[in-house]
């Protein structure tokens, strides 16, 4: 059952820059869809449209009236609210008692018990992003948007946050739309990878990731899936290249193989 529908969405800015063209992405309930692409392919723009922070120039986006949660590239915690209040901020529609209950449960879940009354300035980057994830999920949103929230973190912290997101996803089952430029991250988390190509941002192809979770990054299946995604990226770039000799190897062979 479709839960999030992005239909023929295009975005052209006032200055004439076409950021997105005819984007078509549907996500089923509880599905994790990763939008994979390099910078300039409009993936963050797409997420902003879904979040309602910007309006599409053409096409429609529907989340079926569900609540949306979002985690941005930076934690974006409100510096004047303590950690507990920052998490509670995400639950605007909850009644106060329920909000307080969920806040303390989530603080426990993200491994920051005892931090309720600390200020955001006291947290590390990874801890702040954990709080941002809790804030995004406290309202039990039907759709969770992740805008490269792990890109600024070190590999260890990133892996632990991947685990946290999957853990919370198993419990709350939001549909997740995440954008990333990290192939490894997309294969670790997603049910489906949508590869985009740039200028203007378009959907290049969609790859189903049928692997059970938790996924073993050292398995050959994982490696294969990564290769498939990388080849798709290559093809998306090759399409854009002007005719003539291919930049990489004879016959456009992937630089990654």
């Amino acid at each position: 059952m479709t839960n999030l529908a992005i239909d023929h969405v295009g975005k052209t800015y006032a200055d004439g820059t076409e950021a997105l063209r005819d984007i078509q992405v549907h996500a089923a309930e509880g599905e994790i869809v990763a939008i994979l692409g390099g910078s300039g392919c409009g993936k963050t723009t797409l997420l902003r449209l879904v979040a309602g922070l910007d309006t599409p120039s053409t096409g429609t986006i529907s989340v079926g009236g569900q609540a949306i949660g979002a985690v941005f590239q930076e934690p974006r915690l409100l510096p004047w609210l303590k950690i507990g209040a920052n998490i509670a901020f995400g639950g605007q529609r909850l009644d106060p008692a329920e909000r307080a209950r969920r806040t303390s449960a989530l603080i426990e879940r993200i491994g920051l018990s005892g931090y309720d009354h600390r200020w955001p300035r006291d947290l590390s980057g990874g801890q702040s992003q954990r709080v941002a994830i809790a804030r995004a999920l406290i309202g039990h949103p039907g759709v969770l948007l992740l805008d490269e929230p792990f890109s600024a973190l070190d590999p260890f912290t990133r892996a632990s946050l991947h685990a946290l997101v999957l853990d919370l996803w198993k419990e709350l089952r939001p549909t997740i739309l995440m954008v990333t430029h990290d192939v490894d991250e997309a294969v670790t988390l997603a049910d489906r990878i949508v590869v985009m190509k740039p200028r203007p941002g378009r959907v290049h192809e969609s790859i189903q990731v049928d692997m059970p979770r938790p996924r073993d990054k050292l398995s050959s299946a994982f490696e294969l899936m990564k290769r498939r995604a990388m080849r798709a990226i290559d093809r998306s770039l090759a399409d854009d290249r002007p005719t003539g000799p291919r930049a990489f190897g004879p016959g456009g062979t992937s630089p990654w193989l």
Binding site: A51, G52, L53, A67, I68, G69, A70, F72, E74, R76, L78, F89, G90, Q92, R93, R135, G139
Partner: peptide
Amino acid sequence: RKLIEVGRVFGLSSTG
């Protein structure tokens, strides 16, 4: 602007 966006994403009115 980024903090304003947080308010918008989490459904605050302009007064909020």
